[in-house]
Structures are given as structure tokens and as C-alpha cells.
Design a binder for these strands. Structure first.
Length: 315
DNA sequence: GCTTAACCTGGACGC
DNA sequence: GCGTCCAGGTTAAGC
């Protein structure tokens, strides 16, 4: 085990790992986070400005953490830009240490295909199930076996019935196989090479995959391809954008035109920090929805979603 | 260019 | 206990 220090105002582990960028990290009762990154088991915890970590099989792989959590990027500058907008400023005040992560693009893409119109706890459960089936066992902690995220090749050859029924993902699991087949058919390193492409080109390339629309493409661009201007517009972002930025969209559905208007509104306000602004606002809205705390920290059964309809008056 | 329905499943919620 | 609704979307058809 090793330690490093980082100003907790600019790095909060709970908010970074539970804001919906990733689904496989597990928060343990004793405060440790347990995850698998690029084939390495990572154990990590935060006590104020002090971070304690260990990794396997590469011992204490700090370089991996530095890249994965983008620790060299300056969050103070981001906070300054967020002050331009009252809603973003409020979200930053609540979650100052939320950082943009830099995931493996293949894992990011296939995870978000599995996330389509699904609840976060179900997504995490489903991804866990197919990783245990098609990933590689690399360790064990507290009686829990840890697997790598399966490669696109492995998921391309996966049994669609298993992916649909045994994972609880239904048709989403079958879509994961379809997208994995298309990725596996591309030249090696194709996805990673999109880090070098311009945002519009990377997004266009991703949307050529059947089963990948604008939202999933933007998630991959923002969370794994270094595209700070990508704005994934999901149901949460749509709701808050209509309420605070674009009231003319009230009563409309999320069409391509509406999607692009919302993304443009974020870019206009936050420029190259649009992705992070989106993530701050998403997390604020999302945690409100889950009763003030993320189900990725506390579990779906320990939080409760906000009521769809107000409670009946008593008496 | 917009709306709508279908796609599977599990869990929350209302009654 | 049961029925209904909905969840970090995508696609295709119909208008």
C-alpha cells in the first residue's frame, strides 16, 4: 500500500466514482473502493487530503491512477468557469471534487450500450454478470471475485441468450453483443485512435455503429476520448435544461434538434468544460432523484427514488 | 423534422 | 398481491 496527497477540494473519490461515469467500482462498508482498471485490481480510499491505494498485479501503480483520474488536470480553472452559471456554481459547491475520468474507450462504449433506458443499479448488476461470465478472473477481495471487463472479441462471441436473460439486461444485453461484433470487426486500436480525432469526427465514427446514438457516442467522447466539448444529453439533462436554460422546449420530446440545442447551450456557457459542467449538473439532478445520495455508493435498497407523484394529504 | 411504438427486465409505487 | 409505470436510448415507420 502507498499513499499520496491531493487537495480534497479538487478530488473527491465518492463523487467521482459514483456520478455515473463508471458502473463497476464497488464501495465497501469500511470505506474502501474496489475496482478493476486496465486489467489491474485497484483498492483505494480517501481520508481528507490523503489517498491510500494498492494495486495488483502491478504493485502500487500510481501512473495508472494519475491517468485514470486525470490528476494532472487543473480543476480550479474549471471551478472558475462554472461560476458563470448559478446552477453550475451550485452543483460545484455541492460536489467540488468530482473529476472527469479517462476510461478505456471499449469498456466505456460497451457499458453505455448496456445502460440504455435502464436504472443505474440494474446497469451495474448486468455489467457485473457478463464480466463474471466473459471477463478474466484476476483477483479476490473480501470473498468477492474480481474480473476484467470482457474484450469486444469476447463479447462478440457471447451467447445472446445469456446476455439478455442471465444478466437481467434484456434486449440491451443483445445490443452489447451486436455493438461488440462491429467493434471487433474494426482494425485493432480503432477506438483508441479516436482520441487523436476532432470531437465531431470521433462522434460521427461512433454513431456509424448500429445501436449507438448521439447520447452513447457523447458519453464515450467525454468519458474516454478526452473530448471536453461533448455533452451527453439524457433524460436528467433534458429535464434540467428545459427548466433552466431552454424553456421553449417545454412539452417537447428529445428530438435530434432539441438534443443539439441543449448541447449548444452548454458549449456556449462552458466551452471546453461543457462535459464537466454536464456531469456536475447531472450528478446534482441524479442524486436529488435518488433521495440525495447516489445508489452507486449506498446501494439502491438504502436510498429511495423521489416519488413520481406527491404524497396524499394526511387526514 | 417530429412523434410514436417497440424493444426486455426488475423494482418502485398505487391501489 | 397485483397491475402499472419507468429507467442515464436507439431505431424505424408514419406523418
Amino acid at each position: 500500500m502507498q499513499t499520496f496527497t491531493y487537495d480534497q477540494r479538487y478530488f473527491n473519490l465518492d463523487d467521482t466514482l459514483a456520478n455515473g461515469q463508471v458502473f463497476r467500482w464497488q464501495h465497501q462498508a469500511d470505506g474502501w473502493w474496489l475496482g478493476v482498471v486496465e486489467g489491474e485490481v485497484i483498492k483505494l480510499r480517501q481520508d481528507g487530503d490523503t489517498f491510500t491505494y494498492g494495486s495488483y498485479p502491478t504493485t502500487d501503480n500510481f501512473a495508472l491512477l494519475e491517468d485514470y483520474f486525470t490528476l494532472k488536470s487543473d480543476l480550479a480553472a474549471v471551478h472558475e468557469v462554472m461560476q458563470r452559471d448559478p446552477l453550475a456554481a451550485d452543483a460545484v459547491a455541492r460536489f467540488p471534487g468530482l473529476r472527469m475520468m479517462r476510461q478505456n474507450p471499449e469498456e466505456c462504449l460497451l457499458s453505455f450500450v448496456a445502460s440504455t433506458a435502464n436504472s443505474v443499479p440494474q446497469i451495474a448488476k448486468g455489467i457485473d454478470a457478463f464480466s463474471a461470465q466473459y471477463g478474466t478472473l484476476i483477483g479476490e477481495s473480501g470473498g468477492k471475485k474480481l474480473y476484467t471487463f470482457p474484450t469486444a472479441q469476447a463479447l462478440a462471441a457471447a451467447d445472446p441468450d445469456f446476455m439478455g436473460q442471465q444478466t437481467g439486461l434484456g434486449w440491451r444485453g443483445i445490443n452489447v453483443v451486436k455493438v461488440a461484433k462491429q467493434v471487433a470487426a474494426k482494425p485493432s486500436g480503432w477506438l483508441l485512435s479516436l482520441r487523436e480525432a476532432r470531437y465531431v469526427e470521433a462522434k460521427y465514427e461512433l454513431m456509424q455503429l448500429v445501436g449507438v446514438g448521439a447520447k452513447i457516442a457523447d458519453c464515450v467522447c467525454a468519458f474516454s476520448l478526452d473530448k471536453g466539448e461533448a455533452v451527453p444529453v439524457d433524460t436528467h439533462i433534458f429535464q434540467l435544461a428545459v427548466e433552466h436554460y431552454l424553456p421553449t422546449l417545454k412539452g417537447k420530446t428529445l428530438t435530434d434538434a432539441a438534443y443539439n440545442k441543449i448541447a449548444a447551450a452548454f458549449k456556449e456557457r462552458f466551452g471546453n468544460y461543457a462535459s464537466l459542467a454536464q456531469q456536475y449538473l447531472f450528478y446534482a439532478h441524479f442524486t436529488n432523484y435518488w433521495g440525495g445520495k447516489s445508489p452507486l455508493i449506498y446501494g439502491a435498497n438504502n436510498g429511495s427514488r423521489t416519488r413520481r407523484t406527491p404524497p396524499r394529504p394526511q387526514g
